[in-house]
C-alpha cells in the first residue's frame, strides 16, 4: 500500500513550481531595464526575440522528446548540416531555376525533408533498434557535424549573392514590425502548447515518459509516439534552419554549436522533467527567453564580462532544477 507521504503545503510548492520561471523572467527584465536604458527599446527586444527564435523553435520540439522520456543531442549539428544542404541545393539548382522565390521554396522543402529524415533516423534507431537515445543522438551529432565540415571542405558554405538578397527578408522582415522568426516561433509555441495540454499526442507522450510499460499495456503505440517526437523535432529543426540561413547566408562547422544544450537547458528551466513524464511548452518558451536575456543583459552592461555568459546561464539552470525538485517523487 502506498501511503501518502503527505506534503504539509502542497499548494505552496506547486505555486513556486509554476511561478518560478515566470518570476525569474520578470526579475531579469527589471534588472535589464534598470541597467541599460536601451534594454526595453523595440530594436533590442526584436533582436533578442529573433535570435532566440531558432533555439526556441527547436526547444518546443525538444520538450516533447524529453517529456516522452527521450533526449536529442544531435539538433545543433543537424541544424548545421541542414543549413549546409539547403545552401548546396539552392546553389546547385541556381543555373537551372534562376534566382527567385521558386528556388527559395525548393530550399525550404529541402530543409523540411532533411529534418524529417534526420528525425526519422534518430527515432528508428531509438525505437526499432532499441538503442539508448543518448548514444544514438551522440552518434548522429558527430555524424552531422562532420558531414557539414566535409561539405564545406573545412570552410564556409556561402549562398549565392543574388539569392541572399531574395532570402534576406525571411529573417529581417515581418508583419507589423514583428519579424518572421518571432511569428513562426510564436505559432510553433502556441501549437505545441495546445498539443501538449489538450492533444492526445501530448497525453500519450507524457504517459510514455512516465512509464512506458503502463502505456504499452494500455494499448498506446509506444514506438509510434516516441518516433513521432523525434520526427517532430527534426521537422522543427528544419523550420529553424529555414529561419537561420537568411540571417548570414552561410553555414560552416561552427553553425549551431551548443544549440542542443541550450535547447535542453531551456526545456528544463521551463519545468519539464528531464526523466520524462511531464512537460510544459509555455515553460520552455520562458526558459528560452531567460537564457537569451542573460546574454543580452551581459552584452549591454559593463559590470560583468559577456564572457561569463555561460557561467551565469549554468547557475540559472542549476537553480531552476533545485527550485523545481519534486520531494514527493519516490527515489
Amino acid at each position: 500500500m502506498a501511503t501518502a507521504d503527505t506534503n504539509p503545503k502542497p499548494t505552496m510548492r506547486l505555486d513556486l513550481k509554476v511561478m518560478g520561471p515566470i518570476l525569474a523572467l520578470v526579475v531579469l527584465v527589471v534588472i535589464g531595464a534598470l541597467m541599460n536604458g536601451n534594454f526595453l527599446s523595440a530594436g533590442n527586444i526584436t533582436n533578442v526575440l529573433s535570435r532566440s527564435a531558432f533555439i526556441g523553435i527547436i526547444a518546443v520540439g525538444m520538450t516533447f522528446v524529453i517529456t516522452a522520456g527521450g533526449l536529442d543531442l544531435s539538433v545543433g549539428s543537424m541544424a548545421a548540416f541542414i543549413a549546409g544542404l539547403m545552401i548546396l541545393v539552392m546553389n546547385g539548382l541556381l543555373p537551372v531555376m534562376g534566382v527567385g522565390w521558386p528556388l527559395v521554396f525548393v530550399g525550404m522543402l529541402t530543409a523540411i525533408v532533411a529534418g524529417t529524415a534526420a528525425g526519422f533516423i534518430n527515432g528508428f534507431l531509438i525505437t526499432n533498434m532499441r538503442i539508448e537515445a543518448f548514444i544514438v543522438t551522440l552518434g548522429t551529432m558527430g555524424i552531422y557535424r562532420s558531414l557539414v565540415t566535409w561539405l564545406a571542405d573545412g570552410g564556409t558554405l556561402s549562398l549565392d549573392f543574388g539569392m541572399r538578397a531574395i532570402i534576406r527578408p525571411i529573417y529581417f522582415d515581418g508583419i507589423l514590425g514583428i519579424s518572421w522568426p518571432i511569428i513562426v516561433f510564436a505559432l510553433v509555441a502556441i501549437l505545441g502548447e495546445v498539443v501538449m495540454r489538450r492533444g492526445a499526442f501530448g497525453r500519450h507522450a507524457a504517459a510514455v515518459g512516465s512509464n512506458d510499460q503502463v502505456a504499452r499495456y494500455s494499448s498506446v503505440n509506444v514506438n509510434r509516439v516516441r518516433m513521432m517526437t523525434y520526427v517532430g523535432l527534426g521537422v522543427l529543426v528544419g523550420i529553424a534552419t529555414i529561419m537561420y540561413v537568411p540571417r548570414l547566408g552561410s553555414a560552416s562547422s561552427s553553425t549551431g554549436v551548443l544549440w542542443e544544450l541550450e535547447a535542453i537547458a531551456a526545456v528544463i528551466i521551463g519545468g519539464t522533467m528531464l526523466k520524462g513524464g511531464f512537460g510544459r511548452v509555455w515553460g520552455t518558451v520562458i526558459g528560452v527567453l531567460i537564457l537569451s536575456l542573460i546574454g543580452n543583459i551581459l552584452n549591454l552592461t559593463d559590470g560583468v564580462s559577456p564572457y561569463l555568459n555561460g557561467a551565469v546561464q549554468g547557475v540559472i539552470i542549476i537553480l531552476a532544477v533545485i527550485l523545481q525538485r519534486d520531494k514527493k517523487a519516490e527515489g
Binding site: 502506498a2 495546445v194 489538450r198 492533444g199 492526445a200 497525453r203 500519450h204 507524457a206 504517459a207 512516465s210 512509464n211 510499460q213 503502463v214 502505456a215 504499452r216 499495456y217 494500455s218 494499448s219 498506446v220 513524464g277 511531464f278 517523487a329
Partner: peptide, 30 residues
C-alpha cells in the same frame, strides 16, 4: 503499480489512457 497505472498522474488521465481517441476530437474533451 508498474504496468497498470501511471502512479504520478491523476485518476482522469489514467482512466482514459486506454481509450484516449474516444475522448479526442482534434483536442481532448476534458
Amino acid at each position: 503499480k508498474s504496468r497498470g497505472l501511471l502512479l504520478t498522474k491523476g485518476m482522469r488521465e489514467n482512466l482514459t489512457l486506454q481509450c484516449l481517441p474516444d475522448f479526442t476530437n482534434v483536442l481532448i474533451d476534458q
